[in-house]
């Protein structure tokens, strides 16, 4: 029995060579496939390099896109501000006011101690800072609230007239003031009293102007 089983397991004389040929053939095929696999490995490496390149380009494009967005935002803001300025310019052209008149008016306000009391002010001094009650009534707010024009109470305009400065402030007509309004706001019995000498010619007022200029310059520097 043992001899029989061994005989069955043993290959036939021609079978060994066939198996060897098959093995050699398989080995040849395997070698060929290995060459192909190596080629594919090289291609895979190249693809990985290209994919890295693609990722780099993507990040570049995204960076560029971000910069373009920022530039667009900045330009849009600049265009908006420019349009706003053009609107302001157009508005200013329509209601143009001479800068000299504004400076003149500012000097007049300064002459009446607009920002603070003069250095020589003592209790009992009738001079009051700008704006006085009468000036407030002659402004747009006073017009809107329809404050009574006559029967002005308090120290104005009597105190202001006593100081000799208020009429000078109100006397000139500026383009931004409607003439009828300013005239209507004035007490009728004082209309002639306003024709006083301008304070700019007064030595004392010149000193006041200097004081006020100093104050205003210091305040403007503080605001900066």
């Amino acid at each position: 029995m043992l001899a029989m089983s061994r005989n069955q397991k043993l290959p036939q004389p021609g079978e060994e060579s066939q198996i060897l040929e098959l093995l050699v053939q398989r080995d040849g095929e395997f070698q060929e496939l290995m060459k192909v696999a190596q080629e594919q490995g090289k291609v895979h490496q190249e693809m990985q390099l290209l994919e890295k390149e693609v990722e780099k380009r993507d990040s570049d494009i995204q960076q560029l896109q971000k910069q373009l967005k920022e530039a667009e935002h900045i330009l849009a803001t600049a265009v908006y501000q420019a349009k706003e300025k053009l609107k302001s310019i157009e508005k200013a052209r329509k209601g143009s006011i001479s800068s000299e008149e504004i400076i003149k008016y500012a000097h007049r306000i300064s002459a009446s101690n607009a920002v603070c009391a003069p250095l020589t002010w003592v209790p009992g001094d009738p001079r009051r800072p700008y704006p006085t009650d009468l000036e407030m009534r002659s402004g747009l707010l006073g017009q809107m609230s329809n404050l009574p024009t006559n029967g002005v109470n308090g120290h104005l305009p009597g105190d202001a007239l006593a100081a000799g400065r208020l009429p000078d402030v109100l006397t000139p007509q500026y383009p931004w003031q409607s003439s009828d309004m300013s005239m209507n706001m004035l007490p009728p019995n004082h209309s002639n009293d306003f024709m006083l000498e301008p304070p700019g010619h007064n030595k004392e007022n010149e000193d006041d102007v200097e004081v006020m200029s100093t104050d205003s310059s210091s305040s403007s520097s503080d605001s900066d």
């Binding site: 192909v36 696999a37 080629e39 594919q40 490995g41 090289k42 291609v43 895979h44 490496q45 693809m47």
Partner: peptide, 11 residues
């Protein structure tokens, strides 16, 4: 081995 998950043509 890398790169052999697909055929050479697909690759």
């Amino acid at each position: 081995m890398p790169g052999i998950s697909m055929s050479p043509e697909q690759q």
